[in-house]
Structures are given as C-alpha cells and as structure tokens.
Amino acid sequence: MNMVLRLFLLFLQIGFTCFGGGYGMMSMIFDEGAKRVGLTANEFADMTALDLICPGAVALNSATYVGYLKGSFPGSLAATLGVILPTILVSILTIIFMKKFSESRFVKGLFRGIKPACGGLLIYTSITLALSVFFGSESVYELHKLVFTSDTIALLILFAGAFFLQFRYKIDPILLTVIGAVFGLIFLH
C-alpha cells in the first residue's frame, strides 16, 4: 500500500481509539507506528522530545512529525488529516447529542477500563523506549545480550537525575529537555 495512504489510515485509527489527547496516543503511535510505517524507537523518542519544543497540541505535532519523516510533505498532511477527522466527527456528534453522551454509563464504563489501560501502556512504552535508548535493544527478549559502556552509565545517571528533578521539584519539561541536550552535548558525543 502507498505510504501516504498508510499514514492516513494509521492516524485515522489512532484518532478514533485513543482517549486522553496526545499522551493517550503515544503507545499506539509507538507500536502500531513500528508495525505499519516502520517508525523506529529512536525516531519515536525524537518525536516525543520535539513535541515539547514545538508549539501546539501534542497529537497534531506527533502526526505531522511521523508523517513528514515517513512520507515528507504529503505524508504529514495525510497523518494530520487522519488524526483530526475522527475528532471532528465525534465533536459534531457530541454537539448533537450533548449531555447524554458524556454522562452516560456507557462512556463512564468505557473510561473505567481505558484509563488504567492507557496508564499501563505508557509505562510499557517507556520501558521499551528505555531499552532502546539505553542499550540499543529492540525488545525485552534481547536483554541477555546487553552491552554496558561508559555511555550507558552516563545515560542512566541522566535518567535518574531527570526523574528525580521531575518528581521532586516538578521541573518544567522544556527546561528538562534543555538540560538533557546540554548533558548530551558534553558527555555523549
């Protein structure tokens, strides 16, 4: 199938099934993106970082970035259209059926299951991403051939420091990204 069409369909599916905005979509961009448009873990990691630097909604930034990477300008347009079309449709339906819709037990029940799932999936995504970023391995089954270098130790120190700063001091994510970049510039090239 044509790449532009594949990007459109991928993001159409993501737009329909993901709750909670951009970060609710991350897990699906990560694994469906790998299967269907060949998005690598490193490309995904770059995307999450650039999302923070770029103005606008995370979901739209992500779609534009993945689209551009895999299908240049037409790809970015297709991915963006794909992710917003379901939202537009759902919005219009909601305006028509308003209140009933969002306060129904159906939506409540759906949410009862989906919210924990999204949280769990984000943790799964960060574990897989961490394996790739720290050790260059693509799945948990490659763990036995881990390579520890001085770089790995520097990366782990940065991870621990950033994690601490984020949770202890609720430091601004943009500032955290800048710290990561400067650390990398000095210790990781």
Partner: peptide, 14 residues
Amino acid sequence: GAIRGIRVISVVIL
C-alpha cells in the same frame, strides 16, 4: 550527543 540526551528525557516524561 544532544539528541541522545534528549531521548533520555523523553523516557522520563513519558
């Protein structure tokens, strides 16, 4: 190098 540093931050943020 900077990108590798930023990727670590991505893990933390996610």
